[in-house]
Design a protein around this nucleic acid. Structure first.
Length: 860
RNA sequence: GCGGACGUGGCGGAACUGGUAGACGCAACAGACUUAAAAUCUGUCGCCCGAAAGGGAGUGUGGGUUCGACUCCCACCGUCCGCACCA
């Protein structure tokens, strides 16, 4: 018996698929009555090589695509490249390679690696976001959104990454550090381009409720990120005239607790509040404080410590509900300009931050909410603010009300006084998309001294990146290019300059799924094709994009829909976030990481030890972590291809863990998958002669039932993204087929089992499945074969084993036909020999029969 | 601090809407084949008592609901993730 040889088999079937063009997408006309199904995995950044995490991601998508295709769907399963971004420029800076050639070379490498995985991808639809054809279309819709007022330019304090030398969006700052560089982010005041995502805040929030095939976790993260809150916008009139800068009559604050207004102690301003800035101009002390607070706020240590500081402005405001009541105005470092109005009223008794500030600067603390069951006369605030429910006290017209009633009453009062109105505030801020980098999509705008920013005319699109750029000095190569930015104003014809900022690469990935509907269309999106294919039925990718890519794409989809370019308002109907591929780590006595290929593992009892193969030195077995070059715990897909073939690798990455969880790569695990591949092949290699007589009807029926059960269970597993369970059922099924070899099962039943098996494994191990299919004498390809159906009658048992419990303890079991009525089951259970023995000396009080499940006898 | 998820054998993990806990795989052990090893095949395999038949407790800990709880409720312990001076 020859061993299965993936090195020979796998390439043979891949070239057959390619020759026959089986994965070319069918047009709606070609599809006939087949319903469409769009499967998409988050497209990769062309970093240089496909790693195991990529492989798991794309294999999952491929299983879905192949399964749906066999089930009769017209499947779209494309692939592209998220190809703009910093690493290409870093390669240029470090190694003198042009970003363009670095990127396209990586794409070529990774494309061929992906093809080795045997993915059912329509490669005719491939594109990279750095193709001028793609980013030119992006520029076109960008200008259309600009026409709708969704794109604007403003000066603001932005997150500046001092290592990557560029601005970052809020979503790209993690714990005060740049998401790519890891450098502490600084605050800078710059003029930037923004997309008005806040216009869509409410519908992005509402839309989440329709995404019932998204993980709750991701929806919750987006909900929190958007951060809707209801409250009151309220004006505190200034005491006396204030003439520095603009004409300011009062300070507008935002609060969610207007019920505590009578506990007000002071009004606080953010350091970059317009009034604070105006004051800083005339008052050097304030200027010095503001300057220092701003610097301090950007260091990680200061954020961690959370120390509250402030300075009194010398200004007072009056309480909105009492013109006689004067409150001091402070500037404080804990107030954020980007949220609400950048100004607050402070109620120290019922807000922890306000309390800390008030204690530090000796400001009044007036309790106005008495907790339930607490004597309001003895109630006092020490060093912890009370934020729970209760009754309002010391609050004049609000006295005696609950917190909820007080909220409504205070808002009504403020509105009747004309000093405020109920307001909804979001945490979400507009998306800053300017990047001071070369390798990105140029923002198609021309700055004219006379006309201001002018859109590049349609006929001049795309605005292409120049190839002749240098990276010898830091900063944006586009800005210092000798000629590129110099042009004439499309409006007045005078001399003008191009915008040298490029777009955040998350803009590139916010619409690529729509471009796949027709990647060569003249318009950015082929509306007719997009209407057919979108929304994406199943999107698959890492959870790390929960509030980045996935929020941006939802926003852009809605914006483009409002522009009439798209017919859907949600891009991804189904989302699946898959876990990572991890591996144990090993390090030597010197603390240096050692690659798994250089490690010898020994097991004795329950303890495991590791030694280094090359030197024999003992190693420390470390944590199980995401495969990464720095920890050297990487297994390259190529290594598996060389030793066990693609199919064994595909099988393993989906085997041992549920797909949403991390899977730990182990040598034993891949061996197990390889064994399975060989066990399957062994069943097909020596097929029995067709005239083998069957003389064991019982064994034959058992095999047929197992076949239909397997079809049912495996189909359900694939439908519900439970690949690990589906694989377990396939292992069981193969064990049963193998066991049936020893019995006299006729060729028809055996053939039925093997034909089903080949098709059931085909999404997972497609090369092996084709080989098995051919071995069965089938002339067509298994990728074109329909998914096997099961007969519900055959998939059900003809005899059930019901456990019989006495007082909840299992005491026996009975054999009954399915569907037998409760009375009959009861009789059989009560007459069972083991049951009778256990019931001796006690009386039966009650018998609970759960049909086809269990019998529980209550006795005593 | 706020929000969320999860705790099951030596390990990864099964268990549908409350109904036989430990499927399937890995590791381990024993045996067959082999001059030997690998590969392959067969068997055993959560814990305690027992030679076995059988019995006992058991899904992080403590309580509760139920004829019946890994599953539902309450409290606690632990791990992981997200947000974080959001007024």
């Amino acid at each position: 018996m020859a061993k299965y040889n993936p090195k020979e088999v796998e390439p043979r079937w891949r070239s057959r698929w390619e020759q026959d063009g089986v994965f070319r997408t069918r047009s709606p006309e070609e599809a006939g009555g087949r319903p469409k199904y769009y499967v998409l995995e988050m497209f990769p950044y062309p970093s240089g090589a496909i790693h195991m995490g990529h492989a798991r991601n794309y294999v999952m998508g491929d299983v879905v695509a192949r399964f749906k295709r066999a089930k009769g769907f017209n499947v779209l399963h494309p692939m592209g490249w998220d190809a703009f971004g910093m690493p290409a420029e870093n390669a240029a800076i470090e190694r003198g390679i042009h970003p363009k050639s670095w990127t396209y070379e990586n794409i070529a490498t990774m494309r061929s690696q992906l093809k080795l995985l045997g993915l059912s991808i329509d490669w005719e639809r491939e594109f990279a976001t750095c193709d001028p054809e793609y980013y030119g279309k992006q520029q076109k819709w960008f200008l259309e959104l600009m026409g709708r007022g969704l794109v604007y330019r403003k000066e603001s304090v932005v997150n500046w990454d001092p290592v990557d030398n560029t601005v970052l969006a809020n979503e790209q700052v993690v714990d005060g550090l740049g998401w790519r560089s890891g450098a502490p982010v600084e605050k800078r005041r710059l003029t930037q381009w923004f997309l008005r995502i806040t216009d869509y805040a409410d519908q992005l929030l509402e839309g989440l409720t329709t995404l019932d095939r998204w993980p709750d976790k991701v929806r919750l993260m987006q909900e929190n990120w958007i951060g809707k809150s209801q409250g009151l916008r309220l004006k505190f009139p200034l005491v006396g005239a204030f003439t520095t800068g603009a004409d300011i009559a009062g300070i507008e604050v935002y609060t969610t607790r207007p019920d505590t207004l009578f506990g007000a102690s002071f009004v606080g301003l953010a350091t970059d509040h317009p009034l604070a800035e105006a004051l800083a101009k005339s008052n050097p002390e304030i200027a010095a404080y503001v300057e220092e607070a701003r610097r301090g706020a950007s260091t990680e240590a200061a954020i961690e410590a959370g120390e509250k500081t402030g300075i009194f402005t010398g200004i007072y405001v009056t309480h909105p509900f009492d013109p006689e009541w004067k409150l001091p105005v402070w500037i404080a470092n804990f107030i954020l300009m980007g949220y609400g109005t950048g100004a607050i009223f402070a109620c120290p008794a019922h807000d922890q931050r306000d309390l800390e500030f008030a204690r530090k600067y000796g400001l009044p603390v007036l309790p106005v909410v008495a907790p339930p069951n607490v004597d309001s006369l003895t109630f006092n605030i020490e060093d912890e603010a009370y934020t729970g429910p209760g009754t309002l006290v010391n609050s004049r017209f609000l006295d005696g009300m609950t917190v909820e009633a007080g909220l409504t009453a205070a808002i009504a009062k403020a509105e009747s006084l004309g000093l405020g109105e109920g307001a909804t505030v979001y945490r979400l801020r507009d998306w800053g998309v300017s990047r001071q980098r070369y390798w990105g999509c140029p923002i198609p705008v021309i700055h004219c001294a006379k006309c201001g920013p002018v859109p590049v005319p349609d006929a001049d699109l795309p605005v292409q990146l120049p190839d002749d750029v240098t990276f010898d000095v830091p900063g944006n190569p586009l800005a210092r290019h000798p000629t590129w930015k110099h042009t004439s104003c499309p409006s007045c014809g005078g001399a003008a300059e191009r915008e040298t900022d490029t777009l955040d690469t998350f803009v590139d990935s916010s619409w690529y799924f729509a471009r796949f509907a027709n990647p060569h269309a003249e318009t950015p999106i082929d509306r007719e094709m997009a209407d057919y294919w979108l929304a994406v039925d199943q999107y698959i990718g890492g959870v790390e994009h929960a509030v980045l890519h996935l929020l941006y794409a939802r926003f852009i989809t809605r914006a483009l829909a409002d522009e009439g370019m798209l017919g859907v308002r949600e891009p991804f109907a189904g989302l699946f976030t898959q876990g990572m591929v991890t591996h144990e780590t090993y390090r030597g006595a010197d603390g240096k990481w050692v690659e798994p290929t250089d490690v010898d593992l020994k097991v004795s009892g329950t303890t495991r030890s590791a030694t280094r193969l090359s030197t024999g030195e003992p190693l420390v077995i470390g944590d199980i972590e995401k495969m990464s070059k720095s920890k050297k715990n990487v297994v390259a897909p190529q290594e598996i291809l060389d030793t066990h073939g693609v199919d064994a690798g595909r099988l393993f990455v989906l085997s041992d863990s549920p797909p949403e969880r991390d899977v730990q790569w182990t040598a034993g695990g891949i061996e197990g998958s390889w064994r399975f591949v060989n066990r399957v092949w062994a069943e097909f290699e020596d097929l029995p002669a067709d005239d083998d007589p069957a003389d064991d009807p019982a064994a034959e029926t058992a095999l047929r039932r197992a076949t239909h059960k397997a079809i049912k269970a495996v189909s359900e597993g694939f439908d519900n993204f439970r690949f690990n369970s589906a694989i377990a059922r396939l292992y069981e099924f193969v064990n049963i087929i193998k066991a049936a070899d020893a019995t006299a099962v006729g060729p028809a039943a055996r053939r039925e089992a093997l034909s089903a098996l080949a098709r059931l494994i085909s999404p997972l191990v497609p090369h092996l499945a084709e080989e098995c299919w051919a071995q069965l004498g089938e002339t067509g390809l298994i990728v074109d074969a329909p998914w096997p159906d099961f007969d519900p009658a055959m998939a059900a048992d003809n005899e059930l084993v019901l456990p019989v419990q006495i007082n909840g303890k299992r005491r026996g079991e009975i054999r009954v036909p399915p569907g037998l009525d409760d009375g009959a089951v009861r009789e059989i259970a009560l007459s069972d020999e083991a049951v009778v023995r256990h019931l001796e000396g006690s009386t039966v009080r009650k018998v609970i029969v759960v049909k086809d499940r269990i019998v529980n006898i209550v006795a005593g």
